[in-house]
Each structure stands twice: as C-alpha cells, then as structure tokens.
Design a protein around this nucleic acid. Sequence first.
DNA 1: GATGAGATAGACAGGTCTGTCTATTATGTG
DNA 2: CACATAATAGACAGACCTGTCTATCTCATC
Lengths: 217, 217
Amino acid sequence: MPASKKKAPAKKSLPLSARERIVLTASRLFYQDGVRATGIDKIIAESEVAKMSFYRHFPSKNDLVAEYLQRRHESWMKWFVAAAEQQLAQPGVGLEVIAEVLREWFEEPDFRGCAFINTQAETPAAEERLNGVIREHKAALQTYIAELAHRLALEAPLQTAAHAMVVIEGSIVRVQMTGDLTVCDSCSHLLRKLGRTARRSDTASTDPDLPPYFPGF
Amino acid sequence: MPASKKKAPAKKSLPLSARERIVLTASRLFYQDGVRATGIDKIIAESEVAKMSFYRHFPSKNDLVAEYLQRRHESWMKWFVAAAEQQLAQPGVGLEVIAEVLREWFEEPDFRGCAFINTQAETPAAEERLNGVIREHKAALQTYIAELAHRLALEAPLQTAAHAMVVIEGSIVRVQMTGDLTVCDSCSHLLRKLGRTARRSDTASTDPDLPPYFPGF
DNA sequence: GATGAGATAGACAGGTCTGTCTATTATGTG
DNA sequence: CACATAATAGACAGACCTGTCTATCTCATC
C-alpha cells in the first residue's frame, strides 16, 4: 500500500510510472480523507506529477475515483478471500471465521470503514459508473460468502449469505463509528448463530440452491 | 426536550421564523444530498432568507450541521421509540419488532440511510462537536434497546443490545445500498435468533446487568 | 544527431464555497 | 411618532475546485 515517495533529485529515479503514482496516492487520500474532500491539486502534489500528466491519464476526477474503487475492490477481495481460506484451514470452524478476518482489517491503524459504503454516503447522486462498482463489490462479497456457506454444508447458503452480509456491514460501520473492537465478538456471535441452525445433515457437496456463478478470486 | 423556542413574531406571509425555516430546509437538504454537497447559498435560497439572517443565527455552517444532527437525533429517537412501543403492544413479540419498525422507515420514499452514518462517512476529520452528537445518538439507541431487551426478559440485555446494534446498522446500510427490502427479513431473522437463546427463565423485572441510565424519550 | 512521445512547471479561466459587509425595509414597543 | 430590532437583497473577498493551455525538458529509438 505505501507508495515509495522520495524527493526526486532526478526524475528517472522514481520507480513507478506517473499513472501508478497517481492511482496509489489517490487511493490513500480517497480512503483516508474521503473522495469529495480530496482535491485534484493535492493528488497531483503528493504524487509528484504534473497536472497535464494527470489529465492525460484520466479525463476527469471521476475516472480516477472509478479506478480507485475498482482497484480497491480487487485488492480487498483478494485479501479477504485469502485470509478467510487461511482461517478455514482450521478444523471445526464455521462462518464465524469471517469475524476473525474482519478483526485483522479493523486493527489496521488507518482503518476508516468500507471504502464503498463511505463513497456511497459521500455521493448520493453519484455517477452510475461508481454505483456500479459499489454494487458489484458487495455482490461479489455476498457470492463468495454463499460459496463459503455451501462449503460449510449450511442450508440455504444464499439466504445465509444475505443474513451474513447484514452482520458484516453492521460490524464495519460500528467499528468505524465507535472504534470498539468488541464489535467483533458480536459479529462472531451472530455468525455462529447463523451457522448453527443452518447446518445440513449431509456433508456431501450436492448443491441445493447454488448460485449460478462463482468467481475464483 | 428541545428548549422552548417561541419567539416567532408572526410574520405576515411566512408562518415560520427565519431560524426555523433555515433549520428545516437545511435538514431536508443535508439528509437528501449530504452535508458537504449542500452549500450555504442553496439553503439560503430555498429557505427564503437573507444571508445575513443566516449568519446572525449560525456563526458557521458547522453550527447548522450540529443543530441538524441534534434535531434529527431527537425526532428520530422519538419516532423510533413510539413505533417500537406500538409494536410491543402485541402479545408474544420479541426483539424482532425492531425489524418491522425499521421497515416503516426504509419504505419512506426519500429514505437515504442513517444521517449519522452518512455524516460520519462524509466528514472523516469532523469537528469534535459533530462526532459527539453522532456518538450520543448511537449510544442512546443502544441504551433503549438494552432497556427493551430487559423488558423482554432477555439475558444480558447490554450484550444483546450490542449485538442488535450490529444488525440494525447493517440493515440500514444494506437497504441504503441495495434498495432491497428483503433485508428486513434478514434483520428479523437475526433479531429473533438473538432473542431466542437469550431469554431468561423468570419473567420478573429484576435487573441482572441493567444500564445505569435510562432516558425516557 | 533528429524526432517524437511523454513528462514537467505553472499560469489561467470559470465556477463554487464560506463568510463579511453595506444599505434598505419592515415591525413591534415605548 | 421615534427608535430599536431584525429581516431583506445583493455585492464582495478570498479560498479552493476542476479542467485547459503554453512552453520547456528528458529520453528512447531511429
């Protein structure tokens, strides 16, 4: 995540391309301070790029925001799935591993909630492109959790995933607002309850109401 | 609960005082379009007030935002408690009545999520005053739900309320993002699970871990 | 060496934002 | 009636915002 930013005695000493520096700087500032509160000038200054270089790569600020969300979606999902799979390697665990994965995230010092929830709240009448990325992110997460529920032999994995999404979003928002990590205990408790009553008797891999599409991530 | 504000000198045409028109207009715009996206000029124009009248009543925009949140806190809590108490009049109901109360809110055509969550997301480095109102609102809601859990003879009402808060916030955010009211089913399902395992055997009104302060609302 | 692509600094336009200020008009009370 | 209070319209300052433009510089490749 940290973009290498050194002074630039010679221009070629910067290891990353101008476009990459812009995206990395913008991602940091957008997440930390908000999309609306972060101006183009600040991004340009901190990424040590000329204004024309910026507008050569991004026709408008909104295009940069879209790329920020798109990249965030990819990296966050990759991280989440990897962390969840690692937790799932332990025997006897259930859906509540999600709470432990989230805890890792919440403990990061610069955690400031979900970039997609925040962007949604910041831009009520956002561009349709942004709303699309936001919706797709949440849909992808829900799909993965449904797959998880299915692998854990829970009944009605789609429905269970929908319920789990409520718990996940709620946990994110509450940690962001209160900074209280005991929210993870509530999260774990709720997810365990979800898993408890929804366990199938068989442990085979037949699919009762499997979602039609499982991205790999 | 609000301090008596009765200095309306009964203007000829406009029934409300300038200050009141400002607050009402700002509340509508702040909630609908966001605090940051709503400029002073728009508030002034739509409330049919002069700019100097605005700054006579509010030293800065932030003061108006604070009053917006304060009023929203009071009116929302009043509405929520009244609706919950009405639901609770039915026999045999539990914590899941909250889902029905929330559904009423979600069905309002101009629902756009929780004003406090949105404002928090919009202003990462907000004034301490705003953060205070936001935290107090959520704390008041949690306290009321703990009282509810206690009245419903649930064990550990404080802990149950903490769990319920996760469900509530998650439901709000998900409806705001997806517009899908079946979230209320997830909400109800989760709250019923919370109430089911947490019921005390006795139905008396002894208090195991009662919160120290119960506001009346 | 010449060339062309891409980067750079920085001025600039046009808009919006918060907040101040002046000058005028209504209104209620002594 | 006189006067204080409060509201009005609207200009204005200064900051910040997005986006455009010019003019220069670097560098890889021909």
